[in-house]
Amino acid sequence: MKVGKRRKVNKQTRNRYIWAYIFILPQFIVFFGLSLYPIIMSYVYSFYDWTGIGPLNKFVGFSNYISVFKEEKFWNAFKNTFIYTAGFTMVSVSAALVLALILNNPKLKGIGIYRTIYFLPVVTTTAIIGIIMKNIFGNQGLINEALKIIGVIDQAVPWLINPVTAMIVLIIVGSWKEIGIIMIYWLTGLQMIPRELYEAAHIDGAGYWQTLRHITLPLLAPIGATIILLTTVSSMHVFDLVKTLTGGGPYYSTETLELYIYRFAFASDGISQVGYASTVGVILGLTVFIISLGLGWVVMRVNKSRADAGVQG
């Protein structure tokens, strides 16, 4: 990759450089022309006391930040976001791995149909899923009725009324929705493992489980770290599902940061505080940034140790 810096650039190479700049230009224009201004502005708002309408003229410095940190409900939402993220990442990443291991077998018939089935929730609008699931987990919903018929329970379980079960339901439904796409990531990783390695293992007389333990899983580690990073980052922004499934309840016990932000940015009663909401948005953004830096460091370490071990993907 290293190119001599002082090397004389001939005409053809210069031509290539010019074309490269031309290729990048449109993306550049679209990004700086359309995205930068809105992004910068939401940072600017966080330093203002602003309701969303009227002139932007009450500069308050860091006072929004100070009041955010003093707010009990903010920390509650912060905590809930972490609980959800941790639970969601664990459940969805591991379940998707199991699914991917099964669906990676090219000899399995109907593989396309299975993949489509398990991918289906991914393509559905989350808000609709929330409404459906709310009914399914309701007091007289499908789950309770089914459990009653089987005889596991005789009183309906208040799934969405109890703070602990409400969070569990949220994590399960959230995972169900996203497992399809995470499965695809894992399948990608599985396809990158050279077939010869399996064949060699087979010749050495290794069984399925041994191969899995000693070849498949270690080789999946690097992409696994990346998948965890992507999943964590996206799940910290969970919103639609919480809004439609639990509405943050019971009594704020499933309210996540995005929901908290929404409550202030678009207050249904009372007065919107776009300034305050933007502040929480910036804090969430920074948190995600720090977490991804940490996870990114882990990803690099895993990749490096793999390279050190001399295994090539």
Binding site: K134, G138, N139, Q140, A156, P158, L160, I161, P250
Partner: peptide, 10 residues
């Protein structure tokens, strides 16, 4: 049981 538990979730 004079108030329906359905009140809590709907």
């Amino acid at each position: 049981n004079a108030l329906s538990p359905l009140s809590l979730e709907n």
